[in-house]
Design a protein around this nucleic acid. Structure first.
Lengths: 217, 217
DNA sequence: GATATTTGTGAAGAATAATTCACAGGCAAA
DNA sequence: TTTGCCTGTGAATTATTCTTCACAAATATC
């Protein structure tokens, strides 16, 4: 069940929203202030936070910023009575997923929530793919060595790599180079020199992190 | 061929040592000062550095510290004329692999070198194994999910896990649980509850690190 | 231009990992 | 005692990954 945090200083509106969302099958919690919102967010993982822009003390934008910092996975939908382009753009820039203005039709809100959840699901899938890719690239000893080699001496020829690895059958190296190329970890320039891509450097970082972590036991 | 860097301000001793070690089948290079030693170490990977503790300007301990920083894989054997417990302990604490005092019998030195090389080989093997293990455990989606599950809710029954994963064929889960058990990542108590081991928590940490790293792009 | 070296392709096969299926002991509830 | 669910085993099958081999285009070298 998806969890939604409702942040608004208007208790009646909070209650109404909460009832409606519960009726739609969501789990909801309410916060009457920015401070309360952050406290609840710390102790629990919400899928979505509906945040009123205009609140006394801590403004909605402040709550947004803090929430994004502590729970980057929680999607934020900003709600406000005074819709201006500036406010909206500002909120989106600061990481809000969407922005709707009071008074809103409840269907509009529900649609927005569903879309944002769908987006989250999709992006999570993308991340899963990235992780799979990275891990499967790193899972092979030869590929790890190729990555390390290319990080030390950037721009190596095929035969250089093969010899450095001490592998007799060059087509074996071709195989792993191809895999790394397909994963976007390495690339070749016009002179056939192999390089680590940006992604490849990130992957190498991951490897180093793991090695460090495992060696400091 | 193993590469040894000899660091001593006494040119004659350097030469003698170098000749002997070459005779034993090692590749050697010489450095007459700490500065020179670091320069050579930067541009080349040595398996072992023999460092005299007492040198003008940059002391052997300073060379040791710097070398450990830039080339952690190079093993260091400290050599000194004035063997004191304090010096020895200090050097070992700072990462020297061993410590011998002048005048030394050449056999003593050769034995020490062989032992240190053997240790290095062993430790490298262990680390490679650990890394392979960890990566292959993490390389599977189902296993990653099991690890995550057990980190959230420690001590789960087999069927709980299976249902939570939404997998119909329970024997599939058995397979991955068995693999994780064999890898020492999870274990079962007398009530058949599954738990993450210490190693498992470390593995989970690795996973989290990677996820965080990949998501903040 | 001939020859050698580099940099590949594609298919077959071996090795390893993962899934599926048939079955079974243990235990708790009816 | 029977029924049903939990927790498995072991073997057969399928999928995936890796290696090997026979061959070849492109480039460099003599």
């Amino acid at each position: 069940m998806k969890k939604i945090l409702i942040v608004d200083d208007d208790a009646e509106l909070r209650n109404n929203l909460s009832e409606i969302l519960k009726g739609e099958g969501y789990h909801t919690e309410e916060a009457g202030s920015g401070k309360e919102a952050i406290e609840k967010a710390v102790s629990s993982d919400f899928d979505i936070a509906l945040i009123d822009l205009m609140m006394p003390k801590m403004s909605g934008v402040d709550v947004l910023s803090e929430l994004r910092r502590i729970k980057p996975k929680t999607r934020v939908i900003m709600i406000t009575a005074f819709a201006t382009v500036e406010n909206a753009v500002d909120a989106i820039k600061k990481g809000a997923s969407d922005y709707i203005s009071k008074p809103f039709k409840i269907d509009e809100l529900l649609t927005t929530i569903r879309r944002v959840l769908e987006e989250a699901r999709f992006e999570e899938g993308i991340m899963k793919l990235d992780l799979d890719f990275t891990l499967s690239s790193l899972s092979n000893y030869i590929r790890r060595n190729i990555i390390r080699l290319l990080s030390l001496r950037t721009g190596m020829h095929f035969m250089e790599i093969t010899r450095e690895l001490g592998i007799e059958d060059h087509t074996k190296v071709v195989f792993h180079l191809k895999m790394l190329k397909e994963s976007g970890i390495i690339e070749q320039d016009k002179d056939k020199l192999y390089f680590l891509t940006k992604e490849g450097e990130k992957t190498l970082d991951c490897l180093k992190i793991l090695e460090n972590y495992l060696s400091n036991k």
